[in-house]
Amino acid sequence: MGGRHRGAREERGTVTAELAVALPSLALLLATALAAITAAAVQLECVDAARAGARALARGDDTASVRSRTASIAPAGAAIDIGAATGLARVRVSAPVSLGPLIGSPLRVSGRASVPMEPSVKR
């Protein structure tokens, strides 16, 4: 009867050791998934801001108001490039995404939009 209990104790020790090895891997996998979701969300914010800015520029809004409108939608710390050429209003928004305390430099994501200028707008 004593042999049966010893086997159960050894089995419990094995399960504990396997769990100790698996938990850090699971934590790394979770952190990677959260970083990817965060980067995707910030990239979508950049695209939304670029679209709104390009539409405003195509309507004929002045550059300062386009920049203000774009910045109000863009993620914090975003860089905004505005331009109009060949009949298109173009806006590019890029923003840093921190991937956590273990990664030194942030990843930059961006969104771009081009919209045809309204016929009444001259640029």
Rank of each mutant, 00 (worst) to 15 (best):
V115N: 01
P106G: 04
R51I: 00
A8L: 15
M1T: 05
G60D: 08
L30M: 14
R55H: 09
A64C: 06
E10N: 13
V66C: 05
A40Q: 12
R6M: 14
A64Y: 08
V109R: 01
G13F: 07
S68A: 12
S94A: 12
A36V: 07
C46S: 00
L107T: 00
L107C: 00
S65Y: 09
A33P: 02
R6D: 09
A84N: 07
P101A: 15
G77I: 03
R92N: 07
G53D: 00
S94R: 14
S105P: 08
A79L: 11
Q43K: 14
V121R: 10
A33F: 12
A40T: 10
G53T: 05
D62N: 15
L102A: 15
I82Y: 09
R9G: 10
G77C: 02
H5V: 13
G111I: 05
A8S: 12
R51D: 01
T70Y: 02
L30E: 01
L107A: 05
S68D: 10
I103W: 13
A76Q: 04
R123T: 05
R112Q: 11
A52W: 03
G83P: 02
V42Q: 01
D61K: 13
T16V: 15
A22P: 03
A31H: 05
I73F: 04
G53Q: 06
G2V: 14
L102K: 09
T16S: 12
L28I: 11
R90K: 11
M117V: 11
G111S: 03
A95D: 02
A56R: 15
V115R: 06
V93E: 02
A85N: 06
A56C: 08
A20D: 09
K122A: 07
A39F: 03
G60A: 10
R9T: 12
S72D: 07
V93L: 00
L26S: 10
R108Q: 03
S25F: 15
R112H: 03
R9Y: 11
L102R: 14
G100P: 07
I80Q: 06
P96R: 08
A56D: 13
A36P: 02
G2C: 10
G13R: 14
G83R: 13
L107S: 01
A85W: 02
E118S: 11
A64M: 09
I82P: 03
I82R: 09
R6W: 10
R12L: 15
A8E: 12
L23P: 02
H5L: 15
T63M: 15
H5A: 14
R6L: 15
A74C: 05
G2S: 14
T32G: 14
A54Y: 07
R51M: 05
G53H: 04
S98R: 15
E18N: 06
S120W: 13
R9P: 01
S65D: 10
A35G: 12
A71M: 00
Q43S: 06
S114K: 08
D48P: 01
A58W: 08
G83V: 06
L44C: 00
L29Y: 06
G3C: 09
L34T: 09
A50E: 01
R59A: 13
K122H: 04
G111N: 02
E45V: 01
G53V: 04
D61L: 10
I103L: 13
T16F: 13
A49V: 01
A31G: 08
G13P: 06
P119E: 13
T38I: 00
I73E: 00
V115A: 01
A56H: 13
V42C: 00
A54R: 11
V42R: 05
S120M: 05
L26G: 09
L107P: 00
S110F: 08
